[in-house]
Amino acid sequence: MFNIIFLVFLIFFTILLVYLTKKKNFLLSYTGEFHQTYASNEKIPLIGGIIICISFFFLFFDYSTLFLFTLISITILGVISDINSNFSPRLRLVIQSILIILFVTFSDIKITDTRILFLDQLLSNPMMNYFFVSFCLLILVNGTNFIDGLNTNVIGYYLIISFFMTYFSIYENLGLNYLSWKYWIISLLVVYTFNFFKRLFLGDSGSFILAFIYGFFLIKFYNISKTTSPFFIILLLWYPCFEMLFSIIRKKIQKKSPFKPDTDHLHQLILGFLKGKKLIIKKKYLNTVAGTIINFYNFFIIFLSFTQQNNSIFQLSLITLNIIIYSLTYIFLFRSNKK
């Protein structure tokens, strides 16, 4: 019964928030910049992150004060970025770095075993370990923001991880609070549904907070697990992380600023490719279709990885396959869209 009550309350709250933001013309997506109009020219509320943050606090209020404080701070930073399109990406990165480094250091979050000898020797130094963990979280947070340009692309990706984390926790007996976790997945499904039908966007706040939460969860899970390959965790998060690194290299080659948004990300090229085809799908749904295609691929790859989560060679093979498929697909779509 409580499941239904929680679901109805969350849907009602989301509808109310959508209505208020539109009525007050506040926290809406459309600024007229080309990287936004490429995907949508409608005014859509950027409130996904706010809903996710509130849901997390309601369900996981027993987490450490430092974690919750960092979570709020990252959400606020994302909201400020959503409100102010001129907010400096460099300043945003500096603030993210300070928040995450302080959190990692004072929470004593470390990665104890990477199965790479020279890296493990390097990480035996606590300060280097803190720096490495912070760097990984920063890559994930900003990489997730990079892939947030299609409906369901980000929220669907982390929902997929959520489902596998549930089974992973049972299999490894990692002590997950299943009651809270169940309602957490319900809250993500509500946001997913509204995002699917283009009634809300995650915004920077949504992509930041999801990446931070899942980065923390997966490091914690890996440190508890005795048999799981570290490359399985890397594969779970490969897409946003590789997107970040690939985009930096690409923009350097194209002599563009890594901080300046453009329309040459893989998900945007997929959308552009679909726009150029005569499909029976209405154009306003192509955004969601493109995001769903990417999520179907990621679900398949993560499913394969889960079948042999302890096998590092298998995980590395899948990561390599992902990089090859990503690169070849990118080259094909980039050339097709530029014709």
Rank of each mutant, 00 (worst) to 15 (best):
S73M: 13
F163V: 15
T320M: 03
L7Y: 12
F194R: 13
I233Y: 10
D113V: 11
T21Q: 06
A39I: 11
N125D: 10
P230R: 08
F299I: 15
N311G: 13
S55F: 00
S257A: 02
G149V: 04
H267S: 03
P126G: 07
I4Q: 04
Y330I: 08
I147Q: 04
L316Q: 13
I325C: 08
C241L: 12
P261Q: 02
W238Q: 10
I116F: 12
D264G: 10
I15E: 14
T320E: 00
L174T: 06
F12S: 14
Q309W: 06
N125S: 11
K220V: 05
F201S: 07
S207F: 01
F231S: 07
K283G: 12
S187G: 10
T14Y: 04
I270G: 02
K252Q: 04
L189I: 12
L210K: 03
I44R: 03
S312D: 13
S225H: 03
I83P: 03
S169Y: 03
S29H: 10
L321W: 06
I219A: 05
K284D: 12
Y157F: 14
G272I: 10
F296E: 00
Y30A: 06
F299H: 03
I219T: 06
L68F: 02
Y158H: 10
K277W: 04
L269E: 05
F87A: 09
F131I: 15
L328H: 00
V141K: 01
N298T: 07
A211N: 10
F246I: 11
L123N: 01
Y326I: 05
R250N: 08
K284F: 09
R90Q: 12
K277T: 07
Y19A: 11
L188D: 04
L119D: 01
Y171A: 13
Q36R: 14
G156M: 04
T152H: 04
I44K: 01
K226Y: 02
T227Q: 12
P230S: 08
T31Y: 05
L202E: 09
Y183R: 03
I83A: 09
F242E: 03
S317L: 13
I161V: 14
Y222V: 11
S207L: 07
I170L: 15
F296H: 00
F164A: 09
L16H: 07
I301F: 05
N177K: 15
V190N: 08
D62R: 11
F56W: 12
F164R: 08
S124P: 00
F13M: 15
I95M: 11
C241W: 10
F303S: 14
M165E: 05
L68I: 07
Y157G: 02
I72T: 15
F332E: 00
H267I: 08
T288M: 08
F221W: 09
F242H: 02
S169D: 00
G291C: 08
S257M: 01
I95R: 10
N295R: 06
S180Y: 01
T112S: 15
K252V: 11
I100M: 06
I15G: 04
Y167M: 02
L138W: 07
F246Y: 12
L189V: 12
I209A: 09
G215K: 01
F208Y: 14
N298W: 05
H265G: 05
S187L: 09
L279V: 14
L189F: 07
T227Y: 13
K256I: 01
L202Y: 04
T70N: 13
Y326K: 05
I281T: 15
F232K: 04
